[in-house]
């Protein structure tokens, strides 16, 4: 089956991308599969200046998922474009940069640096990281800020497609989706992690030093599917589904509700060859269930008549 997908200015070999912060810069996974096999790689979150991230402990395993509060530890955008991007096989696999900043001007500046890089296929804007006290939450939860940040990035992005990544920690995600669309986003990706917490009754301490952390993994898939379902019906820009994908069946569920592609996050920790295997497994499963093509299957969810 032809697994190629094209949307919002992106051309992908197949609908499987790896989610930001769960696949390093991609090279970490090269021993376990051929990076060129993937539809796309979203690199770990980048900021203008290097960031040390949050104190330890930063991760905790929870039923069917995990909490993380890494705090966007990264070497800074300059290091990425000079030291890392050149060693990624970007001619053969779409490499998306994930942008993290604390105000619209900084987002714009970051976009400007990345727009100049031939190796960057698109920009994903992280307005939703719930981990960092000074930034993410405010943007991701305020539609006006989402629109402003999207505009600022779009203005400096040149020809690069801009994808805005939405937080589920809001009352109505469709309002945020429309704000991003109005701001000029070419596509949306959702969801980022759900805000959560874990504590230890024996030590009487939080399990994560930052106290509040982001929940990901299979536990959040129903929330993610619901969000994608609502968003595809409320905007006319393409949507990438993220959240709890841990099998080909999970991935196809997101396509069924209307996602153009998916991103795999926590499942990369189940085993490091997960995303590579998923590419073949999705194609096999589509054939097995009798789908004629990706286009025929996408968004074909049969809803009960109202």
């Amino acid at each position: 089956m032809d697994m190629h997908v094209s949307f919002g200015g992106l051309n992908l070999k197949n609908p499987v991308m790896t989610a930001s912060g769960t696949f390093g810069f991609g090279l970490e996974f090269a021993p376990y599969g051929d990076l060129k096999k993937l539809g796309g790689i979203v690199a770990k979150g980048l900021s203008l200046k290097p960031r040390e991230g949050n104190p330890m402990p930063r991760i905790a395993e929870t039923p069917c998922g995990m909490l993380n509060a890494i705090g966007i530890q990264n070497p800074g955008v300059e290091h990425f474009v000079t030291q890392i991007l050149p060693s990624l096989p970007w001619r053969d696999v779409a490499v998306l940069a994930n942008l993290y900043a604390c105000d619209a001007a900084e987002f714009g500046e970051l976009a400007g640096v990345l727009a100049a890089e031939e190796g960057v296929a698109a920009l994903e804007v992280n307005v939703s990281c719930p981990n960092v006290k000074e930034g993410g939450v405010a943007f991701g939860q305020d539609p006006a800020q989402i629109a402003r940040v999207t505009e600022a990035v779009k203005k400096r992005a040149g020809s690069k497609p801009v994808m805005v990544k939405l937080s589920p920690n809001v009352t109505d995600i469709t309002v945020c989706a429309r704000a991003a669309a109005d701001g000029g986003a070419d596509a949306l990706s959702l969801i980022n992690t759900l805000s959560g917490m874990a504590v230890d009754i024996r030590t009487r301490r939080p399990r994560i030093a930052n106290v509040i952390a982001g929940l990901s993994g299979p536990a959040i898939k129903p929330v993610a599917l619901r969000c994608v379902h609502q968003v595809v019906r409320s905007v006319d820009i393409p949507v990438v589904g993220i959240g709890g994908i841990a099998s080909a069946e999970d991935a196809l569920e997101f396509l069924l509700v209307g996602a153009q592609a998916v991103q795999v996050g926590t499942a990369n920790f189940l085993r490091p060859d997960f995303a590579f295997n998923l590419v073949d497994q999705m194609e096999a499963l589509l054939t097995e269930i009798g789908a004629k093509s990706l286009d025929e299957f996408r968004g074909s969810l049969q809803l009960p008549l109202a």
Partner: peptide
């Protein structure tokens, strides 16, 4: 022997500080 999420350097959940104080 820190807690590990991935083992391959991707999740940044296992960090410690080097002598310069970097994770």
């Amino acid at each position: 022997e820190n807690r590990m999420g991935c083992g391959v350097g991707a999740c940044l959940g296992c960090v410690t500080k080097d002598s310069a104080g970097h994770h």
